[in-house]
């Protein structure tokens, strides 16, 4: 584990992985979109409007996945004082918040023709809205202190406390009788979604995941570079003082 704490090694691995991720993303995005918007059949009840699912579902999955990532990174940061874990968690937070916002907005656009309303206060929607505020709180707390290390550690604790919301989001559609439909893919008795719709959906999930990895690497690199500049400046100032 500590082998990967070295920022230089991270840079080397990131440099090696980044082009592959970028190429895969460039290739898969048009394929996924073509499958989702053209090849996949319209839904027998919802018609063409159901195609928004191919954006909504991956965004919602990635919203919770990214939060889980932040929570795990926070545990690693708090327990082992792993410096890269903090950088990764902070880098992932705005991306996760963006995915959550996309899930909420596309869900709203989908809800208008299907449920007849932009928003309902059902358990799934409410818990995802809470998730959005948890992301904002995490980012705000991280940047609320003069000392960045203090902010990072405080935000890690908050991320762990907020993780209680994840199971609530996942099981909200089973525990409460809500307007939001129950899960149709990750079920014990196999997916209830038609294969012709499942494959485009999975492709889009991979596209979203690749995007997350790409942005995460770029943002982590940026933060490490920023830290380096900060250190060099501090050293320069100290040198000038002598």
């Amino acid at each position: 584990m500590h082998g990967y704490a070295n920022p230089l090694r991270f840079q080397r691995i990131a440099d090696a992985v980044l082009p592959w991720v970028a190429v895969a993303l460039l290739v898969l995005t048009p394929i996924g979109l073509y499958q989702a918007l053209v090849l996949a059949p319209p839904d027998y009840q919802q018609g063409e409007a159901a195609r928004i699912m191919y954006v909504h579902v991956p965004a919602a999955w990635l919203a919770t996945f990214t939060y889980a990532l932040i929570a795990i990174a926070s545990v690693v940061a708090l327990v082992w004082r792993h410096p890269l874990a903090e950088v990764a968690a902070r880098a992932a937070a705005p991306v996760g918040a963006a995915f959550t916002a996309i899930a909420l907005v596309t869900g709203s656009v989908w809800g208008k023709p299907m449920w007849g309303t932009w928003w309902v206060w059902d358990a799934r929607l409410t818990s995802v809205l809470i998730l959005f505020f948890l992301y904002l709180g995490y980012i705000a707390l991280h940047d609320a202190f003069e000392d960045p290390a203090r902010g990072a550690r405080a935000a890690s604790i908050l991320a762990l406390v907020g993780a209680v919301n994840l199971p609530i989001i996942k099981f909200s559609v089973d525990w409460w009788n809500t307007l939001h439909q129950p899960s149709s893919i990750l079920r014990l008795d196999g997916p209830t979604i038609a294969p012709s719709m499942l494959w485009p959906l999975l492709t889009m999930v991979v596209v979203f995941k690749l995007y997350l990895v790409l942005v995460l690497i770029l943002r982590m690199r940026g933060q490490l570079a920023q830290r380096q500049i900060h250190n060099l400046r501090a050293r320069g100032a100290a040198g000038a003082g002598v």
């Binding site: 505020f133 904002l136 709180g137 609320a144 405080a154 908050l158 406390v161």
Partner: peptide
């Protein structure tokens, strides 16, 4: 928890609300 996280921070109560209110919803 929220109050302890913000001890000594530059911005006070507005941020406390952002941290704590989502956890109060249940």
């Amino acid at each position: 928890i929220g109050a302890a996280l913000l001890v000594g921070s530059r911005r006070g109560s507005a941020l406390t609300a952002l941290l704590v209110l989502p956890l109060y919803i249940p």
